[in-house]
Write a protein that binds this DNA or RNA. Structure first.
Lengths: 219, 219
DNA sequence: GAATTAATTGAACGTTCGTTTTATTATTGT
DNA sequence: ACAATAATAAAACGAACGTTCAATTAATTC
């Protein structure tokens, strides 16, 4: 046999991407074989090489598009307001929503960096650093303006990102908590962590968000 | 050749453990070959099998001993006091100190769980869950006693653990911050996160810790 | 409907993997 | 010194790996 009836390059490539993200997230990049991936797609291993020249290039493509997606999502969600509290809230909400919705891809992008060649690793880390820089800027602005109370901006940014991204480790959709509830609670924890609770407005905002979350969960 | 002059089983096993932790942390379990490990130890691959029956058993041993070490460290550090603030402070300090000192082993225990067989995975997760349960109990006690202000105990515990363990991702000994400074800052962030800042005692304690840290860093 | 292009198969290549077996040498106990 | 044992080397095993190549068929173009 050769070309199969109904075969379509675009569809096959999309299927490969999807299957690869799931398999790598579950078994790891090194543990996933090209034959295993091909079987999941419903194709012979050789067919994969029509779409991705090497296994590592496939991994890199998945990672790069995930990171670009994260940056794009933040640029779309970034508020026009200069208020650090509003900006931080938007950052947290966008970060958690994006990562929960793409748990598998996030797992891949975070855990398989060591399988990239040095040049490709640099590219991915550049994207990641640029994204984290946004958070540091928000924290610095808020700290300078006196609305945040932060010991160390860089350290706090790392702590917040680790805390938020950690959601994907334990969160399972449809279990005890809804996405909105998780987001509201993380927002509240974030605001307390950066010392933004004293003004009153923040507490008000996060309480409102929690209220909305509980309402949404009750539907 | 066969047995080499000066060869000693105990020393060889210790060398294997140490080299394995470093190699797995750097390249990943699947990517590290038994030949690569043997070369690092200065021995032939077959010699490894005198100490560990399979590659997976080696991984499991490293993980189990790391988790048992964490539990033991906490039992030694756990304060007699029933005060939730003191207990939480001890938990944070022990957790961060332990993880920073064993960055590579922590990396292995956190990232290579999927390479374990189901039974061995269950064993490791049991140890981990027992350790995390301690934190949840502290948060619950503090919440019940009214000294903490927490939305969701389970969620807060996961957030704190992710935040603290995340230190190993970016911390490099001898760089900008000392271990004591990092610990002090994380302690302060933790107390604010759980809403323990209002009483005054906590602020006082973390300020003292920060002072000690700054002093230590100045040496 | 013939020519061209797109998509895939099946088989094979050389390499590396975890592991086993057997032989050989150093050390220890008597 | 001599037996017993501990520690390693050297070579080999079959299996699986990523990847390539030639052949083959479906879809598209003219």
């Amino acid at each position: 046999m050769a070309r199969t009836t109904g075969s379509d390059g675009e569809k096959t490539e999309a299927t490969i991407r999807e299957a690869a993200v799931n398999l790598i997230a579950r078994f790891g990049y090194e543990a996933m074989s090209m034959r295993q991936l091909a079987a999941e797609v419903g194709v012979q291993a050789a067919a994969l090489y029509r779409y991705f020249p090497t296994k590592e290039e496939l991994l890199f493509t998945l990672m790069r598009e995930h990171m670009e997606g994260l940056t794009d999502a933040w640029e779309a969600a970034r508020p026009a307001s200069a208020d650090p509290v509003r900006r931080l809230a938007a950052y947290v909400e966008n970060h958690i929503a994006f990562h929960i919705e793409r748990r598998h891809a996030t797992h891949v992008s975070n855990m398989e960096l060591r399988s990239l060649s040095p040049e490709r690793l640099t590219q991915i880390l550049r994207l990641r650093t640029a994204y984290e820089k946004e958070l540091r800027a928000i924290l610095r602005d808020g700290s300078d303006a006196g609305v945040f109370n932060i010991d160390d901006t860089g350290l706090t940014a790392m702590a917040l990102i680790q805390m938020m991204t950690g959601v994907i480790v334990w969160f399972r959709p449809g279990e005890r908590l809804s996405i909105a509830e998780v987001t509201a609670t993380y927002l509240s924890m974030t605001m307390r962590l950066v010392g933004a609770g004293t003004a009153g407005e923040t507490t008000h905002d996060s309480a409102r968000a929690l209220g909305r979350a509980r309402d949404a969960a009750a539907l």
